[in-house]
Amino acid sequence: MTRTTTRPRRRSADALAAALATLALGLGGAPPAAADDPGRAGQVEVPAGVSAGVAVFDRTTGTFTERHNENQKFRSASVVKLLIALDYLRTHDPRTLPAADRTRLDAMLRRSDDNAASHYWALGGRTAIVDRSVARLGLTDTDRPPAGYEDYWGYVSLSAADTVRIYRYLLDTAEAPVRDYVMGNLRQTTRCGADGFDQHFGIPGSFERPYAVKQGWSGFGASGDCGPKPAAAARNARAAAGVDLTKEALHTTGTVGPDDRAIVAVFTLHPDGTPYGSAYTAVNRLTRSLDVPGAARPAGTWVGTWGSGVKVRPRPTTVDSAPLTSLPAGVEVLVSCQKEGQEVTVPPYTNTWWAYLPQYGGYMTNIYLRSPGNQLPGVPLCSS
């Protein structure tokens, strides 16, 4: 089930287009559309039914390796917390922040805490944050929330191209204390968000460290699945300025590889009613299809799961092996090996085999894996 794909080298004829895109980013202009780059056709594997905007920028060569609808605007969800943090740190030295501020900012960047974002959104003048960010960072696709929704920071619109600009500003232009503080937090992103959603999809689900990420999700209700969640906010069925505000949105952004070599921005919308685990899996598949320079990919076999609230445990047993976390319902997981352990019965099934999930650091019973037998075919035995 594991597939290895060898990508062809980018054609030298694309170098001029890439250089123009890089120049446009530096000047705040929009890069050429993906259709202008013949080397990009068909490279990004977008799952059926998913709308995506993608950009991957190689900081070593100064060129894009992936561009797909990179100027399409999406509601930002929590990705806008990058702009909220940068705007606040514009006038506050991260080295001398009061303890309360540091705690709140850390939570916003690592755990995607919404209360912290709302605090700084109001403190910074709400939409004034967007106006300042557009001017300072040379953003071309970023807009305020629609009229009447100024309190909804997650309705700020962003594109993959502008997200690359944000990370390039952070890495190459921002003062060192700001860069080190923000990137340091993004390197410590927690598996579970403050609202109980598993945020280990996309970049952290597809590549080995080093990486730094800021994720975004919106419209999924309470189906995360890291545990209890606050009540879901009512969904607003309005679309404005061509930006969809209702479909389930799942975004993964950040840097990958030594010295933050690649900047990756993946924005996605999913058919209305898509479960979180299905969107999670779709974003992982899309992200794994990308050409990301400097990325190390984890070894193992991707396998689908069924059931909800499936537990991952430190050992292949439920005895004295308290759950580490729960899986989002129906998510695809990476299995590196399997071993026999405690017999588990979920009528009408009984199984003694457990799969090790390296990205979760624990085991799940094979009962909940989509496999024809008790033991996964082609998956090796765990050595210990």
Rank of each mutant, 00 (worst) to 15 (best):
D225F: 07
F220L: 09
P358A: 09
E248Y: 03
K81Y: 01
W353P: 14
T65E: 03
T173Y: 10
A160K: 03
A234G: 06
A262V: 13
E343L: 14
N236E: 14
P94W: 07
S384A: 12
E332V: 15
P271I: 03
Q215F: 04
T287Q: 01
D291E: 05
Y280R: 08
G257D: 04
P298M: 07
W153G: 06
L369M: 00
P293F: 07
A33W: 10
F267Q: 02
R75A: 01
D87E: 05
L86F: 01
G53F: 02
Y88G: 05
A240Q: 04
S383F: 01
W121L: 00
D87H: 03
R104A: 15
G341Y: 09
A231W: 11
R11Q: 14
P328Q: 00
N284I: 04
G62Y: 03
V178Y: 09
Q199F: 02
P323S: 06
L381D: 10
P323H: 05
W354S: 09
K81G: 00
R136G: 01
R261Y: 00
G138R: 03
R285K: 14
R136K: 06
E248K: 06
Q72E: 07
S133Y: 06
L123S: 11
F201V: 07
R75P: 10
R75T: 10
V292P: 00
A55V: 05
H200A: 04
I203W: 12
S383K: 11
H270P: 12
A222C: 11
W121Q: 05
T325M: 12
G216F: 11
T190S: 14
Q188G: 08
R209P: 00
A24P: 14
S159Q: 09
E208M: 06
T301K: 02
I166Q: 04
A85W: 06
A21S: 15
V303W: 05
L286G: 09
P372G: 06
E66K: 12
P98R: 11
D58H: 07
R191V: 13
Y88V: 08
V80D: 03
A282P: 07
R235I: 10
L334Y: 04
G378W: 06
C192Y: 13
A100V: 10
S76V: 00
G304R: 04
I203Q: 10
I166V: 15
L286M: 08
T63R: 08
L139H: 03
G219W: 09
T142F: 01
P271A: 00
A100W: 01
V319P: 01
G124C: 03
S157Y: 12
D162R: 02
D259E: 01
R126W: 05
A19F: 15
L245M: 14
R179S: 11
T22D: 08
V156D: 05
T91I: 09
P228V: 14
V266H: 03
A116W: 03
L97W: 00
V303N: 06
R7S: 14
I263P: 01
A262M: 07
V80L: 00
A116E: 07
S78H: 03
V46A: 10
P372L: 00
T268W: 02
A116S: 14
Q199G: 02
D180L: 15
S383H: 12
Y363E: 05
V264R: 10
R95W: 09
N351D: 14
R285M: 10
L250E: 11
P145R: 04
N185L: 13
S278G: 05
L27V: 10
